[in-house]
Design a protein around this nucleic acid. Structure first.
Lengths: 152, 152
DNA sequence: CAACTATAGTTTATATGCTAAACTAAACAG
DNA sequence: CTGTTTAGTTTAGCATATAAACTATAGTTG
């Protein structure tokens, strides 16, 4: 009886961990492929994530961008440079602090940003179609708990 | 009233999408740092994942390894080469098919594998401590649903 | 005020983790 | 037997970072 209980616990946890593993694989798959956003031509995952982060906040500074993306300032600078060359963003000195750089989207960048937002909206709709309110709540709760657990 | 309903729906879905986003950031953070497994010295995420995939199945073929990891055969070969140089795996021709290569763990590789398994066990216990049976069930269900949705 | 420290961003070199393409040898099909 | 497919390997290149070194600016202290 007691043994059976332990068995069930183990089974439950590896079911969860298996599903998490699959979810992660799926996320990885999605994260790997360049795709088109608007009329902007193909953009790598990193590029569109950066555009999205810039589009979220008017007049973001380079250091803020780095923080938002969770990368080093060097990485953010390199990506911003690349997107500037491609015509998606503009860099300008910050009037309030001569050391700082303000990054903004060009018209092309804005198109890409908007296309990404639309995709995001579609994703949210998909979630809506899949999960009930109750499920969503529990899912968010579990995922947040998992994130906390992963902190250690 | 109807408008309010839509508002609530949007809020629900962006809660989910926000949590997923956070989860992804956390995964990224974890995926970036080499760590020690057993007495094996530091191993990159890719290395330990490959060791884990090899350890899972006795006498895995290179193509199977690639499939399991969700990468190209070329990528699998390169990683196996690297791990062979480091002494974690062995490569041998498959007796059943001269084109094929069988990959197995060395003693060092096995130590790393076992250490990773122990970590995995700890993770499962952590999940156990965090989530009730009911939560787990719903969580798994949601994850599986989202995986399917993400296929498109 | 000057000297020192901290900070923002940039640049460079390097590592990790892939992919595609080209190639070789073996297996399979007709 | 010939032609096609398949397994693995190798090479070149790309994406996405990091650390370190650097320059210029801002802040702090005496």
């Amino acid at each position: 009886m007691k043994n059976k209980e332990i068995y069930r616990d183990d089974n439950k946890d590896s079911r969860v961990s298996l599903s998490i593993g699959r979810f992660i694989m799926q996320l990885r798959r999605l994260e790997r492929s360049p795709r088109s956003f608007g009329a902007a031509g193909p953009l790598t995952p990193g590029e569109i994530h950066t555009i999205a982060a810039i589009g979220c906040k008017e007049g973001i500074l380079m250091g803020e961008l780095a923080a938002r993306l969770g990368v080093t300032k060097g990485a953010a600078t390199q990506m911003a440079s690349r997107l500037e060359v491609k015509g998606f963003v503009r860099r300008a000195p910050d009037p309030a602090d001569a050391r700082a750089t303000v990054i903004s989207l060009t018209q092309t960048g804005l198109l890409a940003y908007q296309a990404h937002e639309e995709l995001h909206r579609r994703f949210c709709q998909k979630i809506s179609a899949c999960l009930s309110s109750h499920e969503s709540e529990i899912f968010v709760d579990c995922l947040d708990k998992l994130c906390e657990a992963l902190e250690e």
